[in-house]
Nucleic acid binder design. Structure first.
Length: 421
DNA sequence: ACTCTGAGTCAAGACGGC
DNA sequence: CTAATTGACTCAGAGT
DNA sequence: GCCGTCC
């Protein structure tokens, strides 16, 4: 779910953090990309069969889906051709806190499955199509396929211990890549210095992309990093519920006024704004002892499950856990990213023999890939780096700020290192 | 009248020949 | 031993 | 630019 409404909030309240730039301006850059998200989109979008007939995924002779391979292969070659060196980051295990959210998704999925069955019976092709898209998921098989493909292409692959966005942000903070390429606004909460959106080629003619600058987010909103994380939690993230009645506008106002979630909870009128129980687990315990004005019938069963975990040892409020996930997310620290020449022979075998791709097309694409690799591995001299300092009128000011931020980032990293086990 | 929230729904790639 | 997205848009309704 | 095709 990312962070609900963050993109819009930023464009309203901190417009300077967003820039529309030409794709060209990313020439020579390394960019970390969330692989699972890309795969998911390919599985949904790359289909054959026009209107009025059941859309179907592309498949090889064995009937295995190849849509994601097709998409990933083309897009990666396109990146390389544009002078962008991608590194694909795969998801690891989702954090425990997310399981509540995942249960909800599974229920939705089961609903879609039922709806699909009905639609099939009625022969309603349009409805079948819609429901089948809701059932799409990027599973282990698809992830493995893409890992193999990318490795054969000589493109680095990183498997995150946990969430891909957090790992991508870490790569960016460490200076191993220029930016995180994603549509998921979570990456900003993980404090990726640069986020690139719309990094797709749907509009090949215009080829504009959008960048978001983390420092400018902080500057524009006029809050600290910790406050920004609290703001994101209040907007709504995957890790916990939100305060009912508080949306983007109010959340920003409250954080600016009170500084953090603890103070917000203390201050606001809790009759008007209902704070989730999981945010105040200690209070809940007291309530249960003294008197309960709760209606028992209305209590949802999912909440009970949640308490099962919380009651035993954790009296840690859910938003504190969420904070921790954003600030100390488990990531790999010492990574080397290497772009190698593709293994042309094996790559061709994989695509043609295993996946049923057209030989000529594959050969042609491999040549493109090799040419792009060669061009990219020449010593890089980004033209703009020569006069970047002069171009910025606030150079001194922002340089000082960068320094301060770098120091902060460093502190955060070393903290992480002590935590890792 | 205006502002805001929240629930629901939708759509989602890339190439090449013309 | 399974599963694993997300943002944009619209519209109704509540609160101010 | 639109539209069929990729597998």
């Amino acid at each position: 779910m990312g962070i609900k409404g963050l993109a819009k909030l930023l464009s309203d309240e901190a417009p300077d953090c967003i820039r529309e730039v030409e794709l060209k301006s990313l020439h020579g850059r390394k960019i970390a990309i969330d692989a699972s998200m890309a795969i998911y989109q390919f599985l949904i979008a790359v289909r054959s069969g026009g209107p009025n007939q059941q859309a179907t995924m592309l498949t090889n002779a064995e009937g295995e889906t190849t849509s994601h391979i097709q998409g990933m292969f083309n897009r990666t070659i396109r990146y390389m051709t544009e002078g962008i060196r991608p590194v694909f980051v795969f998801d690891g295990k989702p954090p425990d806190v997310k399981s509540h959210e995942l249960i909800k998704r599974r229920e939705k999925r089961e609903k879609a499955q039922a709806a699909l069955a009905v639609a099939s019976e009625e022969g309603n092709v349009e409805e079948q199509d819609k429901q089948s898209k809701r059932l799409v998921r990027a599973g282990t098989k698809e992830n493995e396929d893409c890992r193999k493909l990318l490795t054969l292409m000589g493109v680095p692959v990183v498997t995150a211990p946990c969430e891909a966005e957090a790992q991508a942000a870490a790569l960016c903070k460490a200076g191993l890549v220029y930016a995180t390429g994603t549509e998921d606004m979570d990456a900003l909460t993980f404090a990726t210095p640069i986020l690139v959106r719309k990094l797709t080629f749907a509009n090949a003619s215009k080829s504009m992309v959008q960048t978001m600058n983390y420092n400018k987010v902080i500057e524009g909103l006029a809050i600290s990093h910790d406050q920004f994380v609290d703001l994101c939690i209040m907007l709504g993230c995957d890790y916990c519920d939100t305060i009912r009645g508080v949306g983007p506008k109010t959340a920003l106002k409250l954080i600016r006024e009170h500084g953090n979630i603890e103070k917000v909870i203390e201050t606001i009128d809790r009759k008007k704004f209902v704070v989730p129980e999981s945010w105040v687990p200690n209070e809940k315990k007291l309530d249960a002892q003294s008197d309960d004005d709760d209606e028992e019938g209305v209590e949802s069963p999912s909440k009970e499950e949640n308490n099962g975990i919380v009651d035993t040892e954790e009296l840690i409020p859910a938003y504190v856990q969420a904070r921790k996930l954003f600030n100390e997310h488990e990531v790999l620290n010492d990574i080397e990213l290497k772009w190698k020449p593709c293994q042309a022979e094996d790559l061709q075998k994989f695509l043609v023999d295993d996946m049923g791709f057209n030989v000529d097309r594959v050969k042609n694409n491999i040549e493109k890939l090799q040419a792009a690799y060669k061009a990219n591995s020449k010593p890089q001299t980004r033209m703009d780096s020569f006069f970047a300092v002069k171009a910025n009128p606030n150079a001194a000011k922002s340089a000082a700020k960068r320094k301060a931020d770098a120091a902060k980032a460093k502190a955060a990293v070393s903290k992480k290192k002590t935590k890792k086990h």
